[in-house]
């Protein structure tokens, strides 16, 4: 099959359209806001500004890209149809899928869905490529393992109830052009 180039419309960024100066101001405003807020707390007598992990945990913003997980539907099945687009999009080739057939209307499901978390670089391209909202960048960050085998996550470990991923799915629906 011949390689085909599909030209995607990407308007060139100009100074006024990309607004780099606005981004700088935005960032500085975030820093200033935190500084002023903390200063106010300090003046009112607060001494300890650290978050005591793991007893205390931050609620991460939805833009955070943590471990990719698979959405599990109410009937306990995965949403994934093993189309292989995430596997193709993955720059580190950390995803391995073997499809299989099911009698359901969706026809296919991943018999094997493995993610090598030691190779994953949390770029989120799998999530962006997914046509089914089946692979989602969760807010899960605690994925360290003592062994390499422990870094290989199988389908059963990756399935997360879809309700728990709502913050992120709302976020990607807002932000990704589909």
């Amino acid at each position: 099959m011949a390689v085909q180039v599909v030209n995607v419309r990407r308007p060139a960024a100009t100074f006024s359209s990309a607004k780099p100066w606005l981004a700088i101001l935005k960032g500085m405003w975030v820093s200033t806001r935190h500084f002023l807020g903390n200063l106010g707390l300090f003046l009112r007598g607060r001494q300890d500004f650290a978050i005591h992990f793991p007893e205390q945990r931050l609620v991460q913003p939805p833009a955070l890209r943590g471990m990719p997980v698979l959405a599990r539907m109410a009937d306990g099945k995965e949403r994934c149809v093993a189309c292989g687009l995430c596997e193709w999009a993955c720059p580190t080739s950390c995803i391995t899928i073997y499809p299989a057939e099911t009698a359901d209307e969706v026809e296919r499901y991943p018999e094997i869905f493995d993610i090598d978390m030691s190779r994953c670089m949390f770029c989120g391209l799998c999530e962006e490529a997914c046509p089914e909202e089946a692979i989602i960048m969760s807010r899960q960050l605690e994925i360290a393992s003592y062994t390499r085998a422990g870094s290989l996550w199988h389908k059963a470990d990756l399935l997360v109830p879809v309700e728990q991923l709502k913050t992120r799915t709302d976020y990607i629906r807002r932000n990704y052009e589909r």
């Binding site: 099959m1 093993a82 292989g84 596997e87 193709w88 499809p99 299989a100 057939e101 026809e107 296919r108």
Partner: peptide, 12 residues
């Protein structure tokens, strides 16, 4: 070949 492998992974 039904539901076995995506064609873009195949080397011909």
């Amino acid at each position: 070949f039904h539901h076995r492998m995506r064609v873009w992974f195949l080397e011909e």
